[in-house]
Simulated scan of single mutants.
Amino acid sequence: MTLSLDILERLIAFDTVSHRSNLDLIAFAEDFLRARQFRVHRIPDLTEAKAGLYAEIGPQTDGGVLLSAHSDVVPVEGQVWTRPPFQLTRDGDRLYGRGTTDMKGFLAEMLAISDSASRKALKAPLKVLISYDEEIGCVGIDRMSARLKPLLGHPELAIVGEPTEMQIAIGHKGKRSYAAQVTGQAGHSALAPRFVSALHLALDYVAALRNLQDGLERNGSRDDSYDIPYSTIHVGRIHSGTALNIVPDSAEVLFEFRHLAEDDPDSLARMIAEAADTVTAPHPGAAFIELHSLATYPGLATAASNPAVNLTRNWSGGQVCKVAFGTEAGFLSELNIPTVVCGPGSMVDQGHKPDEYISEMQLIKCSKMLARAVNHLL
């Protein structure tokens, strides 16, 4: 545990909130892995302000185990911390700092087991992946996918180490998020009925989205493994207007849908677009709603009978579950890699919260799981 805690201390000190660069963390991981004879590939973002990393050790063959983590963390602004967020501090069994649970705890254990694997005669490869911009909609791994596909090959399984309290998550919903740009007509509020208010249009559109949500709840697919067993549509923000006495001619609605594997996201997207057309139809030439995609990631639906699930259960001792939050696992699954989500910490109790922490006991459980995974490669 000493090495993994030393690594975790270094990782927490890197302020990798998604709107900042992660290059210092990537350089640290790159140097760490190269020093242990890993074959390392840096995958820069188009802006060159960020990068992902793929590395492997052992035979240059298919098979083996892929471990995956993201490097970015959510902001601390607006939260009240009683401890320095970018400094690892201890209180009993708890290790505090932004990202300890989501998900630098797993990343630290991933690098620590890489050190151990570098001293073993592996018969199958250990592969590790570090991404960026996961917290803003799995944007980074989406951009990395074209470069990753020929590098990854066909691992026997992939473990994405998001916090599941070391349970084995085999499913989560997919997600698409949008900005709806609403255009109406400006005018003096004294003559408001003569104009088409963009704010009114936006509210009508929100009502239409709520009706779609009601329909999904009543008639959509269901999976009782989830806390919310149906696909959902959520509106998170509306912005419109400049002054009380001006009819607003523009508005913006930010919203998302999260879909079960059984619900076709393209069909949901068409229903959402049709709802926009229905709202603007009574005002030809005077009202418009344009939908702009912000981010998208696929869901995960790994069969409980998949050998990857049984292997991970044997290594972790956890139970099979599904999780409410999204991960990068769906991207790996779409590359035909059997994928599960299993990592230390609790997203519900610790993730994204002030005074985020992870228990040392959870890290020990993760360390033991990864040690068994490496032994599988011998």
Rank of each mutant, 00 (worst) to 15 (best):
M1D: 12
R10D: 14
L11E: 07
V17A: 10
H19K: 12
D24N: 12
I26N: 07
I26K: 08
A35G: 14
P44F: 08
L46R: 15
A49K: 14
A49F: 00
A51P: 05
V65R: 10
L67I: 06
V76A: 09
P84S: 08
P85K: 10
L88Y: 12
L88V: 09
G92R: 09
D93I: 09
R94Q: 14
G99V: 10
G99D: 09
M103N: 10
K104Q: 10
F106D: 04
I113A: 02
S114A: 14
P125I: 03
D133G: 02
E134K: 09
C138N: 09
C138Q: 12
V139F: 06
G140R: 07
P150I: 04
G153W: 07
H154N: 11
H154M: 02
P155T: 07
E156Q: 13
L157C: 11
I170K: 03
G174T: 11
S177T: 13
S177I: 03
A180T: 04
V182N: 01
A186F: 00
S189K: 01
P193R: 10
A202D: 08
N211R: 15
S221H: 14
I238K: 02
P248D: 05
A251Y: 02
L254P: 00
F255P: 02
L260G: 04
A261H: 14
D266G: 06
S267L: 12
S267I: 13
L268D: 06
A273E: 14
T278Y: 01
T280Q: 02
F288Q: 12
L291M: 12
T296W: 02
A303C: 00
A304F: 03
A304S: 15
S305P: 00
V320W: 06
V320Y: 02
F331R: 09
S333G: 05
V340K: 11
G343Y: 03
S346N: 07
E356R: 10
S359W: 01
S359L: 14
S367Q: 15
S367I: 00
M369F: 08
L378V: 14
